[in-house]
Nucleic acid binder design. Structure first.
Lengths: 227, 227
DNA sequence: CAGAATCCCATTCGATACTG
DNA sequence: CAGTATCGAATGGGATTCTG
């Protein structure tokens, strides 16, 4: 891919000092922000990203990774041997897009047209927890909650005013949600589907401290819709 | 313009429940969010918007206005006679993009590549004040500050933890900044250019309570850059 | 598997001209 | 002023193929 002329950015964008314009030049392209989102919880490989974003072609992913790298949002890195695979990782500035992604999510959730039952990626679900949590109550939960979604695992450790999430084994978790697909868990948390029904019919498994699990999911709710 | 098929939105977008994706479908198109930004401080006419966004053609503006209206972000309205002109105005949900626009701006400002000396529209400058204000000090300013930029006027009335801005005559202001272009004022506030130099060489005029004016501009600063 | 390279079609854009 | 109509050029994206 030919590098774009640096004075004009992606082509002929708006030469505007406003941050809105500048930011849209960098991450406003189709797929860009979704790719950034997938990297938000840690470095991933080309094929991981592709698998999480159905509809994104290899060509476009290659192009977006290149322009995001050029913009300084992410870097391409070789993992040390053994492994020695190539991964993409957000820079510090790239990670600083999280509030941005959260605002996008909050705004979308207020739309009456937003449909929370559409498919979503594991990372997308985990990040939505951070967006929609009631932070005045996160401190009341004691214990770690694990999620195993397909072949990805995450650990959530609620604390006062915070909700740290990291990838990792769920052995240390006190309660674990296990499901083949993120949309199942999203259905329980956001669409109010009964948990026992999801366990019987959708392949959800809740392990460990079930009471903890239920108090945990009660932390999350969608905002009221706006006209 | 043919309306898009409603099931696929703008064409073939990502069918993802994540708010990021949904929001990008609605306002992620080129120019869309800049148009929304121009409406943020009140309804405007077609040609007002066009004049504020150099590089935006009538064709594209027409298209964007149509899709933003269809998405429920803005509405098209006839002003009552006399006047009887057509204006575009944000819906309640459209106005709810302000935190989003602010996050975009905050993030952009942390980039080392961001150039605050580029041209910007009057609305863009006024909104940046709300984004960059030090809200622990806004309450210490007593008095109204007016801005006249080209032929647009705004009134800012700082209060504890808030910075309301509205269009309006600056007669009631205790201090007024007057400049032919927003970039001049931005240079003083964000780029640290000396105010007296701007007055002598760039056509800036500061009227009224000069001490108030200087304490007011000290409320604003750009964040530290990230790698 | 991780991408680069080609090919080709669909869409989009900008410029210009036109209209109520 | 507030758009609409048209046209040629540029861009974008999917499918496919190739390579280390």
């Amino acid at each position: 891919m030919k590098l774009q002329n640096e004075t004009k950015g992606h082509g002929k964008w708006y030469g505007d000092a406003c941050g809105t314009a500048f930011a849209m030049e960098l991450v406003g392209e189709r797929w860009s922000l979704l790719i950034v989102r997938e990297l938000m919880l840690g470095a991933r490989r080309f094929s991981d990203i592709r698998a999480s974003l159905p509809g994104l072609s290899a060509k476009v992913l290659t192009e977006r990774l290149a322009s995001l790298e050029e913009a300084g949002v992410l870097i391409r890195r070789q993992l040390p041997p053994p492994g020695k695979v190539q991964v993409y990782e957000l820079t510090e500035w790239g990670s600083a897009t999280e509030p941005l992604i959260q605002e996008l999510g909050r705004w979308a959730a207020k739309s009456s047209a937003h449909d929370p039952t559409l498919p979503l990626s594991p990372v997308s679900l985990m990040l939505s927890l951070r967006t929609m949590a009631d932070y005045v109550r996160t401190g009341t939960i004691v214990g770690k909650v694990g999620f195993v979604i397909g072949d990805e695992s995450f650990l959530v450790e609620p604390g006062p005013g915070e909700l740290p999430i990291r990838r990792g084994e769920v052995k240390e978790a006190d309660a674990v949600f296990r499901a083949p697909d993120a949309v199942i868990i999203a259905g329980g948390i956001y669409a109010g589907m009964p948990w026992d029904e999801l366990e019987q019919e959708a392949g959800l498994v809740i392990e460990g401290d079930r009471d903890l699990a239920m108090r945990f999911v009660a932390l999350f709710s969608l905002p009221d819709k706006l006209a």
